[in-house]
Write a protein that binds this DNA or RNA. Structure first.
Length: 482
RNA sequence: GGCGACGUCGCCAAGUGGUAAGGCAGGAGUCUGCAAAACUCCCAUCACCGGUUCGAUCCCGGUCGUCGCCUCCA
């Protein structure tokens, strides 16, 4: 079976065929860097991270471009988000941009999100945006006003609204926005805005001093790095209208070609049933979430529902995800313990059938529009079988153990990013810590053999207080770090 | 009002025209010095009402409800 994806543009599941055999060009709308990222961002970017990872696992070469919006994204008051923040903190706008860009990558790194191949900034691509606006004017799709603003003329582009199913007539009726001076139609959107003298981020242009509109950066940068047509355009569903719609209009009006072949949009994250967003103030930052939960558990929580569905955040859901993750990791750890002094040879090779089966099921799930929740189910079923095997008392040879470990590393690690390569605490002397714990385990074993259970339980309890959990197995005692 | 989704076990969440994965929680066991972990067993007819069909949770229509977008948001 080949990869199928649900294309929001055509509203159906389609076979994925990249423009160039073996290569995928993907663009995902990135964040506006005026505040710390929240877990709503995490949902979108972890989702696309897994899509990126799975495409690579499937053998594709991927060029993944995700922009950083650092100019032009206005509040409904007309203020630039970044300028507003800069003014409030008496900082240069670019200090704000730098601070939150770093913060964003810090958070995504912590969540195990692989960095895009290119993270272009809007402010670094102003010439490209001006050029595109100019071309749109020349082609008759945009017009400049006396004030020095440039607007896209939505009526000149009959396909405007095709992604979201919006019709211009309906928009007119529902328009609550104050119509800017000089617009021919309320739905016309800005490609370029003139800057007032006190405005800090501004550039020269054929229409005077100003700054680019929000939507045009994505069209300009996606086209620059991926070409006039590329394979996948991603982002959050809430940006479908007007942002994605405007991107399409700008790019396709100029090129006459499809902007992107497949539109993959993620469902929003809600908190107590309400969308988490900066403007509502009900957001939980990634930095806060990581203080309480393992990054892998946060990933598992996000991957527990399909990327295109909305997901409701709750403490209970996170706890449940973390427990589920611990169950998986129990088997991973058991496998790696067994591997330490595994007998050579292919004992237990009958298990290879189960390995192949589950690997196949996992691939089938992911091939079906990146169905991570189902793939996780496969991994959990696999885990039950692994636990049964490793607790059976039968000899399991190195070959089989390595094959099991490979499943966890490749599917759980490389693809889903929830199984770390090494189970150890960062920043501590792992070897010394391990030695000390082993010493205590030996002392406790001695106490147990003398039936001194008071002492053996004391050792276990005191270690548990330190976050070291001991588990007695027929073949000895193992430990887990909490 | 318009556009787009969704409504599956206590919670989260996959899925299929032929009586429904998985995780969490819960109950009963096995194992254990006791635990923990693990394993076994138990735990849902899929919002409601019509229709199509031999048969629908999955297809169509309607009702109710929830959410997103239409205004900044990933």
């Amino acid at each position: 079976m080949t990869l199928q994806v649900f294309n929001r543009m055509t509203r159906q599941k389609e076979e994925f065929k990249p423009l160039t055999e073996g290569q995928v060009k993907m663009y995902v709308c990135g964040p506006t860097v005026y505040d710390h990222a929240h877990i709503g961002h995490a949902k979108t970017y972890v989702s696309f991270d897994v899509i990126n990872r799975y495409l690579r696992y499937s053998g594709y070469r991927v060029r993944y471009v995700q922009n950083i919006t650092d100019v032009g994204h206005l509040l409904d008051t007309g203020e630039d988000r970044i300028l507003k923040k800069a003014g409030a903190l008496s900082l240069e706008p670019m200090e704000i941009v730098e601070t939150y860009t770093r913060s964003y990558f810090e958070d995504m790194d912590a969540l195990g999100v692989r960095r895009p191949n290119i993270s272009p900034r809007a402010s670094g691509h102003v010439p490209e945006q001006i050029k595109m606006a100019q071309a749109l004017i020349e082609a008759g799709y945009a017009y400049a006003t006396d004030e020095g603003d440039v607007y896209f003329d939505v009526h000149s582009w009959p396909e405007y609204g095709k992604l979201s199913g919006q019709r211009l007539e309906e928009l007119e009726g529902g328009a609550r926005v104050e119509v800017a001076e000089g617009k021919r139609h309320p739905a016309d959107f800005a490609l370029w805005r003139h800057a007032e003298p006190e405005h800090l981020m501004k550039w020269d242009s054929p229409w005077g001093v100003g700054f680019p509109g929000w939507h045009i950066e994505c069209s300009a940068m996606a086209t620059k790095y991926l070409g006039e047509t590329f394979d996948i355009h991603g982002g959050g569903l809430e940006n479908r209208f007007p942002h994605n719609e405007c991107e399409i209009a700008q790019a396709e009006a100029l090129s006459g070609k499809p902007f992107a072949n497949y539109w993959l949009l993620t469902g929003s994250l809600t908190v107590d049933g309400v969308k988490m967003s900066k403007s509502l103030g009900n957001f939980i930052t990634v930095k806060d979430a990581i203080k309480t939960y393992r990054p892998e558990a946060i990933r598992l929580f996000i991957l527990s529902s399909h990327y295109s569905n909305p997901v409701d955040f709750s403490e209970a859901a996170l706890v449940s995800a973390q427990k589920g993750w611990e169950r998986l990791m129990g088997a991973v750890q058991l496998t790696r313990y067994a591997l330490r002094d595994a007998p050579e040879g292919d004992a237990g090779s009958g298990f290879q059938v189960a390995i192949d089966e589950h690997r196949q099921q996992f691939i089938e799930a992911m091939d079906d529009d990146f169905n991570a929740p189902q793939a996780l189910g496969v991994l959990q079923n696999f885990t039950r079988e692994v636990n049964t095997l490793l607790n059976s008392g039968e000899e399991v040879g190195r070959e089989t153990l390595e094959a099991i470990d490979a499943v966890y590393r490749e599917l759980g690690g490389d693809v889903l990013g929830i199984v770390p390569d090494e189970i150890s605490e960062a920043g501590v002397d792992a070897a010394r810590q391990d030695g000390l714990i082993q010493l205590l385990i030996e002392m406790r074993a001695q106490a147990r053999s003398e039936k001194n259970f008071a002492l053996s339980d004391l050792i276990r309890d005191r270690l548990a207080d330190l976050g070291v959990i001991l588990e007695d197995r027929p073949d000895g005692t193992v430990y887990k770090l909490q």
